[in-house]
Simulated scan of single mutants.
Amino acid sequence: MANTSLVSSVAETGIRTMFHSTPSQPDSSTSNGQQQSPPSSQNALRSFPGVRCTLQKFGFSGDVANLVAASWKDSTQKQYRSYLSRWLQFCGEREINPYTPSLHLNSVLEFLTALYHQGLGYSAINTARSAISSLELSSNNPIGNHPLVRRLIKGVFASRPCLPRYSRTWNVSNVLNFLESLYPVNMLTLLDLTKKLAMLLALVTGQRGHYLHVLETTGIDFSENVMTLYTRNVLKTSRPGSHQVPIRVSKFHDKPALCVYSTMLAYLDRTELLRENTDLLFIGTVPPHKPVCRSSISRWIKSVMLSAGINVTEFGAHSTRAAATSAAAKRQVPLQQILKAAGWSNDCTFRRFYNRDSEQETDNSLSEIVNSV
């Protein structure tokens, strides 16, 4: 694959302060080594100083607190926010300190059990466990690792299993056939050209929607026959010492209607005069042509899937990742090439969550594009 390799009442403001705002003057009640008294219900619900304030209460400087808080990615913050809001309310009603969950094992177990009775499943409750553990910044043994908490989580899975969302995937050939009909590109509307590019990139790179969202025009290089995509943004798979490698996509001479290289050039040419102070690749298709959010890109991809006859009530935009990588694997693309393009360090994630059976592929275009580099 590319080198391509694929066709390749806590108030909301109170919750945001957990990661984004500067806390008020830290409470000095812990400086003498004594446990801080539990916050009142109203204070816990209205003003949660969060990670930064918790660290400062243990004597760390604001700079240290800011760097530690920055270790949580935006996506993680969004995942945790809802559960931390509920945890704060839970603690406020019982007048216990939400910052020391390891001292309140029974309360943590009751909270997670309450979420279960509200209808939440294994994945959501496990996220809640991680969110609560993130508050335990002063302990070497986060509450989430307590044997009883881990046993409860296993019980949730046993009684309400969390199975992979997709047991199968869709036929990439159907989408490729539809994309071929969107040709020549200079005759397409801006909307159709945008949809075609978004889908081709999703299939070629095998990446998440976030990758397409943060892709910038300054991170696209063209040589005579190869387009190279770079990103300097932190992705879900980014970690110290490891980042998404550049993705190289060759011209596809055999089927120019499916050539990502020429489609990208056409899109950049069409949008050059429409861009205003943005390097992000994808912009709105109607004035004022501002940078779009990730959900807009997902809607474009789902629109193409729907036009190609894919059941979008069953498959979402993220399913392109499974469809593309699974199809590439079936076409005997080397596994390491698939992992490299998709940003996986090993095959565990691919085999467990993405490698799925699909209807019989009838079009060899995927294989040809994948091996065109």
Rank of each mutant, 00 (worst) to 15 (best):
C293Y: 07
T231H: 00
L281S: 00
N233E: 15
P161T: 07
S303G: 14
Y99T: 13
A257H: 06
S8K: 10
A266G: 10
V286N: 10
L88A: 11
M187T: 15
C162G: 12
Y116D: 13
H213D: 10
A341P: 08
K290I: 05
K196E: 00
L215K: 00
S326H: 07
M305K: 05
L306A: 13
Q207I: 03
F19Y: 14
L268G: 00
V68I: 11
N97Y: 05
S102C: 13
L339E: 04
V175K: 00
V333F: 08
G241I: 07
S85D: 12
S40E: 10
V175W: 00
P288N: 01
P161L: 10
P161W: 06
V185D: 13
T263N: 03
V226W: 06
L112M: 12
L152N: 12
L137Y: 07
S173F: 04
L45I: 12
Q34G: 09
K340I: 14
T54H: 12
G309A: 05
T237R: 01
Q56T: 04
N177S: 08
K195I: 01
W300H: 01
E12R: 14
C293F: 04
T127Y: 04
V234H: 06
L265V: 09
Y261E: 00
P101V: 08
V370E: 15
F350G: 09
R168A: 13
N346D: 14
A317E: 02
S262D: 12
D192I: 02
S85K: 14
Q89W: 05
H210Y: 13
L67P: 08
Q56H: 08
N177T: 06
E110N: 11
V175N: 00
P26Y: 00
S37N: 14
I143W: 04
P256F: 04
T228Q: 02
L258I: 02
L84Q: 06
N225A: 11
L258N: 01
T113Q: 10
L179S: 00
L152H: 15
L193F: 00
L103F: 13
H318P: 05
E361S: 11
V185S: 10
S181H: 05
I369V: 13
S358E: 09
V245M: 07
K251Q: 15
P26V: 02
V286Y: 08
N106K: 15
T76A: 05
H210K: 11
K57F: 08
T22V: 08
Q56A: 09
F90S: 04
F222T: 07
D269I: 03
R160I: 08
L339Q: 07
V204A: 05
S367I: 08
N186Y: 12
K195C: 06
T127D: 05
S319L: 12
L339S: 09
H146Q: 06
Y183V: 01
H289M: 03
M199G: 01
I297V: 06
F350R: 05
L105K: 11
S159A: 15
V373R: 09
T22F: 08
K330V: 12
D279L: 02
I283M: 04
L193I: 00
